[in-house]
């Protein structure tokens, strides 16, 4: 994923400083920096795992007792916990990744001067973008793996294909990281982050995370299908509940393209913003 921009360099017009493509070796140092910063805030890192788990216990187990069984992917009846758990996994992948690439990124980019310091070294703008995305994905992988293990312990992973739920979560994280990073390059101040919430909360609540698409009128359901989180939820749920079809490649490609395009846009905009 990190080398996807490597051949972008040749396309860069004269008068811009991006002649050397991002290198995987250099972007790793950006990840190292974040790991170093979190070493003193390990508890912040740790608590990131709890939120999806608490939702699983409250809405999944608590409200689930009032809901009973419902049809999962492929039409088989599943318990409500089993239905909601992969949805929460997908939503957590989105939330973590968006937080890292919008809020955390903005502080470093706008106020802390972190990237100005990095760009005075051999690191380039592409390395910064790839490094930050790489960090968001690394963190997301840890959370996703921990959550999947918890789901397995609660008996909520019905199929061995469920192992793929972790890479799927990374793919969801990648899609939203690209989106988040690109969007942040247009933000002027913290007030603009209201728009991030304005997008995240409805995605979290209405992307078939908590109830199936059949609860919507037909037209609305089609709109929901187009959202990236719905695609992610659909992918996770099918993998965990073992409904494997070729069509699962659609959400995978969709999310991958979103991430790739987002990082590309972000890199080129950052070159202009950080190196005027």
């Amino acid at each position: 994923m990190t080398e996807s921009l490597a051949d972008l360099a040749s396309a860069v017009p004269r008068g811009r400083i991006l002649p050397v493509g991002p290198s995987r070796r250099r972007s790793v140092h950006v990840i190292e920096r974040n790991a170093l910063a979190y070493r003193r805030m390990w508890y912040v890192f740790l608590t990131g795992f709890f939120e999806p788990l608490l939702y699983l216990l409250s809405i999944g187990v608590g409200v689930g007792a009032l809901v009973g069984r419902l049809p999962g992917p492929g039409g088989r009846l599943v318990t409500y916990e089993a239905f909601v758990a992969p949805g929460l996994l997908a939503a957590a992948a989105m939330n973590g990744s968006v937080f890292d690439t919008t809020f955390n990124f903005f502080v470093k980019y706008k106020y802390a001067g972190t990237y100005d310091a990095m760009l005075a070294t051999p690191l380039g703008v592409g390395d910064v973008a790839h490094g930050e995305v790489g960090w968001a994905l690394l963190r997301g992988t840890v959370y996703a793996a921990a959550f999947l293990l918890t789901m397995a312990a609660l008996g909520l992973v019905a199929s061995p294909w469920g192992v793929l739920a972790v890479p799927a979560a990374v793919l969801i994280g990648y899609g939203f990281a690209g989106l988040g990073l690109a969007a942040t390059t247009w933000m002027r101040s913290f007030v603009d982050f209201d728009f991030v919430n304005l997008a995240l909360v409805p995605l979290f609540l209405f992307s078939a995370t908590f109830f199936p698409l059949s609860r919507y009128p037909n037209g609305v359901a089609w709109g929901v299908r187009l959202t990236p989180l719905y695609q992610g939820v659909n992918l996770e749920r099918s993998l965990v509940l073992g409904d494997i079809r070729w069509t699962l490649l659609v959400p995978a490609v969709y999310l991958g393209a979103l991430g790739w395009g987002g990082v590309r846009v972000a890199s080129s905009r950052l070159a202009r913003l950080l190196q005027p």
């Binding site: 809405i59 409200v63 809901v67 009973g68 409500y80 909360v201 609540l205 209405f206 908590f210 109830f211």
Partner: peptide, 19 residues
């Protein structure tokens, strides 16, 4: 309000259908 719509109406419909 979004929580009310999603959980109260969306998920609530499933609850009422059963319990």
């Amino acid at each position: 309000v979004m929580f009310l719509a999603a959980i109260g109406l969306g998920l609530g419909g499933l609850v009422e259908r059963r319990t």
